[in-house]
Write a protein that binds this DNA or RNA. Sequence first.
RNA 1: GCCCGUGUGGCGGAAUGGUAGACGCUACAGACUUAAAAUCUGUUGUCCUUUCGGGCGUGGGGGUUCGAGUCCCUCCACGGGCACCA
Length: 854
Amino acid sequence: MSLDISEITPYNFAVVEPKWQKFWIDNHSFKTQNRQNKKYYVLEMFMYPSGKVHIGHVRNYTIGDIVARYKRACGFDVLHPVGWDAFGLPAENAALKQKSHPKDWTYKNIETMKKQIRALGFSYDWEREFATCDEEYYGFQQKIFLALYKKGLVYRKKSEVNWDPVDNCVLANEQVIDGRGWRSGALVEKKMLSQWFFRITDYADELLNELDNLKGWPENVKTMQRNWIGKSEGCSINFSCDNGDQITVFSTRPETLYGATFLAISPDHPLAKKIAVSNKAVRDFISELKKGSVSQQMLDKQEKQGIDTGLTVKHPFLDKRLPVYIANFVLMDYGTGAIFATPAHDERDYDFAVKYNLPIISVIKSENSEVPYFGDGILFNSEFLDGLSVVEARKRVIEEIDKRDLGKKEIFFKLRDWGVSRQRYWGCPIPMVYCPKCGTVPLKEEDLPLRLPDDVNFSGTGNPLDQHPHWKHIKCPICGGDATRETDTLDTFVDSSWYFLRFCVGKESKDLLDKSNVNQWMTVDQYIGGVEHAILHLLYARFFTKALADCSLVNVREPFTNLFTQGMVCSVTFKNEQGEWLFPSEVRKNEKGEFIEIATGKKVIVGRLEKMSKSKKNVVDPDVIVKTYGADALRLFVVSDTPADRDFPWSDEGLDGSWRFINRVWRLFVYLKDKGICALATRDIELSSLSEEMQNLYKGFHKTIKDVTVSFESQSMNKAIAYIRESINCIYAVLDKAEDNVSLFSVVVRDLIKLLAPIAPHICEEAWSMFGFSNLVSENEWPKFCEKYIVVSTINLPIQINGKLRGTIDVAPNAPEDEVIQKALEVNNVKKVIGDKPIRKKIFIKGKIINFVV
RNA sequence: GCCCGUGUGGCGGAAUGGUAGACGCUACAGACUUAAAAUCUGUUGUCCUUUCGGGCGUGGGGGUUCGAGUCCCUCCACGGGCACCA
């Protein structure tokens, strides 16, 4: 009796998926192997245990899992670990709000999210799992801190910090966005505090230069890092002031020195402060600027403000004096906090000069003498620089400044040292002690780990560690006298700056950076995560790797060979007339096809696709999807249709389509099983014994293997899926021949399962076992394709006349020119178009095209 | 303002300088069904044409080429990053 394909029971993911998930875990199927030199380390940016997995995580980890499973099939020993970035503010916020301990909150969240992650069937080595708040991990991090301290890469200084008044916490520059705290959104204030710093600026040049060698990184990420490091080359110049002081300025355009008409110093410049003491107008001006908060200044940044100090400086080359202004557009934390201004060739200087009626002197010839002019040109008005080009003049003037001892060639970076102190409880304690006699003293290594006390009180203000009754009191490690601990904890970006190294070492080793292990696996062959970490995390991780190398703790200087930044999952948004966000379930289409709010019947505003977020009410819950459609359908969907590095437009219809595809595959498997397919899967195919149609199926399938392989190699999952779908369509078209071609279909379906397994592992594992294979599909080699089958016997060759398509002919791919021309000229439409016009030229590309020019 | 990136059907997107629109979503039609759902099979850029076929089409304009979505110039739009960085 024949099996009707439409009557096959749907794929029961609810039974199949948990079965294989349990099997993989119980059997340690993805335990890191250490058999050979062919190794591959694939890592997805680890997760913050916020409480629930969201769809963005699903996409990120699906991409990584596909890579891991594919590489394993290609014969690599694969390291594919999972862990938790578990320290940080939200745990403390939750502690305040829900009266739960940050530790309990965090570990509970990890448990919840682990279940969710496991339900997606990712091929992790769960034995290497850890959380950064594990004592073992942060204890070792303290050792690293001390190693960096000994190496001179850690120091403490009093400095103005960004103070977040809501989170009561210091923020790094990178955590301030438009003058607001990156997490709380509160306006940031300035405050002076003693802080610990890492000397990332020591590595500014290397961090910049090495970017050129990171061929496997996206160009935009490298550009962002370059801009952030912000190297500029120029020179410093000293000006003597008439009050006896010297003012040192930095300029990248010293060749414009003869066009200088005034000096401008920052309101925070020491000289400005000195003048303020005796000059009330200056004092008032500075305090007026201070009054506006950081962000107010940002808002006013277009408006140049300044005040004449009354002081003048001597021009280094000319017998003239330049007035010194205090100007709001000069920043103290860049360069020297002072500039010479050449209004003719700098926009900001120009704006300022116009506002305060200062002279404008051109020194570079431009075509129409317009000012300000920033282009190239020939110098004039500039004595010994006259007639030189901008580049020549720059070189010449720096030589001269150097010769006369007025200044020197200098390089400045925008990059600042990394402040790592946080006035927070839920982080890695800094292993330092303050002794009234011995000063700042590091803890002894044998006293590590320095544990966080569990019995803390969250009042909501200040640092609970500092307020703990006895934790901070300690005997000095040197003199044994009364001393106090550092109560700040480390920025959580420190935790994520070396976790990828820890994954290289098995749990049995006490040395978390065990060199033989780390060297075996580093670098990370493929790192995958969101572009939002392009600067902070990735720059810090690069710095840390270099610093650890200089402490002889690791052997590599760059952590990530290839970086892939996946796009965000986006969805439509709805708003009602009041501007309130609406859930998709609160909206429906009316008869006219307009979207209306169900509750009110009023029209809603349909927004553009935006990143899924709770606040915009356009989220989907991965748990619900997995329950309704299964993990395979979800995995398939999030990498279908759209390239993985672009934003992904979520649609319920699309998800439904993925589910239909999973079922279509399932019906194919069940149908073929019923026809006795696959029992003979290992038998070789004798091509000549097959009909032409079946030969084409086989050849076409080799093309599929090639296309899918190439697509996986370039992380083009969307294309891989398209080719697999195409192939399945081809198989469906000849399904009625399956019974008569058992060995052919057996080989095809065997390899088809392998091709699909990285994306939809559960259904493939189930099919693999259903067809009677005794091992796991993931233990099998990736299918191989033969070029000789991919070369087809005839191709459909296009015929062009004057570059326009006028017909096609079927010929052998290697058909010679004579044959092709003869056949092409026999095509009716070609005859018609050419008519009696003479053929002036024939362009023939073998196997590609014939083009007649008439 | 500066620096990146992207513009292809109703939608997501394919396409080593060589038949634009693979694959999917949507929509429509047929088969199956009492019917619906599901499934299977078609059609689906646009205009003209009964057919054969033809015109126009990859943001706009120009160029290189036998031939351009692809290369060059220029303009426009959108997205992202940095933003008084001397």
